[in-house]
C-alpha cells in the first residue's frame, strides 16, 4: 500500500512535468493546426538558456522563468511568421518537415556550441526530498513543476475565455475561414498563438532546469511523450493535456514498477494507439478535429 501511494505520487509529479511541456504543444496543435516536431528542441534550447543565465549571471532559474518565457514568445512568433506562415496552406507533410528541419538544426547547433556534455543547473534545494504527510517522499523541484503546470494551464484557460484576444484565438480555432469575417486577423492570431505556445516551453525549461540537465538530444527524450499526451488529451484541449499528462505519468510510474521498466514506453504507446483507434479526437477533443 505504502509503495502504491509512493508510485502514485511519483506518477502524478511526473505527469506535472509532462503537462508543463505539453501545454504549449497542444495550444499550437489545436489552433495553428501544425504539429511542431521541433517542440522538444525548443525545450532543449530553453534548458541551455536557463543554464547560461544561472551559471553566467547567477540568476535563480525560477527567476529566469518569466524573462525566458517572454523571449521565447518572440522567438516562437518570429518562427511562425518566417517559416510556418508561408506553409499554412501547404500539405501537412510539408509543415511537418519544416519543423523537423528546424529541430535538426537546433539540436546540431547545440552540439556545435556546447558539445555533448551534460550542463546542469546547480540548485540542490530543488532536489531535496520533501515528505508528503508520511505517505510519499518527493522532490521540491518536482512539486514546483507540478504546481506551475496547473497554474500555467489555469492562466491560459482564463486568458482564452476572459480576454478579447483569447476569444479571438478560440474563434480562429473553431473556424479559421469564418474568423476573418468577424474582423480577426487570422495570421496575427497564428503568430501570437505560436508565440504563446513557445513561451510555455520557455517557462517549462526554466522550471525543469534544476531537475533535468541540458544536452543536445534532451528534446528527443521528451517530445514523443508530449505528442502522446497531446493526442491522448485531445488536440488543442488544455485540460485534456493536463489530464493526459497525469495519465501518462501514472502509467510510467506504475508500469515501470509492476510490469518492467524497459517496457513502460511500450505500455503507454499501446494506450496511445488504443485511444487513437477508439477515440481519434482524444479524451477531451472535439470530434471532427482529427
Amino acid at each position: 500500500m505504502d509503495i502504491l501511494l509512493q508510485l502514485i505520487a511519483n506518477g502524478a509529479l511526473l505527469g506535472g512535468v509532462f503537462a508543463l511541456i505539453s501545454i504549449g504543444l497542444t495550444l499550437i496543435f489545436g489552433i495553428v493546426r501544425v504539429v511542431n516536431f521541433a517542440h522538444g528542441e525548443f525545450l532543449m534550447v530553453g534548458l541551455y538558456a536557463t543554464w547560461i543565465m544561472a551559471s553566467q549571471l547567477g540568476l535563480h532559474p525560477y527567476v529566469a522563468a518569466l524573462p525566458l518565457a517572454v523571449v521565447f514568445f518572440f522567438l516562437g512568433a518570429l518562427m511562425q511568421r518566417a517559416i510556418i506562415q508561408p506553409l499554412m496552406n501547404a500539405d501537412p507533410h510539408i509543415q511537418i518537415f519544416a519543423t523537423v528541419g528546424i529541430g535538426t538544426a537546433l539540436a546540431n547547433g547545440a552540439l556545435m556550441l556546447f558539445s555533448a556534455d551534460l550542463r546542469s543547473v546547480d540548485l540542490p534545494w530543488a532536489r531535496q526530498a520533501t515528505d508528503l504527510w508520511g505517505i510519499a517522499s518527493v522532490s521540491r523541484g518536482n512539486l514546483v513543476a507540478f504546481f506551475v503546470s496547473f497554474a500555467a494551464t489555469g492562466a491560459l484557460i482564463a486568458f482564452l475565455n476572459r480576454t478579447h484576444l483569447g476569444r479571438a484565438i478560440r474563434a480562429v480555432a473553431q473556424n479559421r475561414y469564418a474568423a476573418p469575417l468577424m474582423g480577426i486577423d487570422v495570421n496575427r492570431i497564428y503568430a501570437i498563438t505560436f508565440g504563446i505556445g513557445t513561451g510555455c516551453v520557455g517557462l517549462a525549461a526554466a522550471v525543469l532546469a534544476p531537475l533535468y540537465p541540458a544536452f543536445p538530444t534532451v528534446g528527443s527524450f521528451f517530445v514523443l511523450t508530449a505528442f502522446v499526451v497531446v493526442v491522448l488529451g485531445g488536440m488543442g484541449s488544455l485540460e485534456g493535456a493536463v489530464i493526459g499528462a497525469l495519465i501518462i505519468g501514472l502509467v510510467e510510474s506504475l508500469a515501470g514498477y509492476y510490469i518492467a521498466p524497459d517496457l513502460k514506453e511500450v505500455v503507454y504507446f499501446a494506450i496511445f494507439l488504443g485511444i487513437l483507434i477508439v477515440r481519434p479526437a482524444g479524451l477531451f477533443g472535439v470530434r471532427g478535429n482529427e
Partner: peptide, 14 residues
C-alpha cells in the same frame, strides 16, 4: 566542427 553538418542539413531542409 561537431554538429555543423547537421545544422546545415536542417537549414537546407527548411
Amino acid at each position: 566542427a561537431n554538429g555543423l553538418h547537421g545544422l546545415v542539413y536542417g537549414l537546407v531542409l527548411v
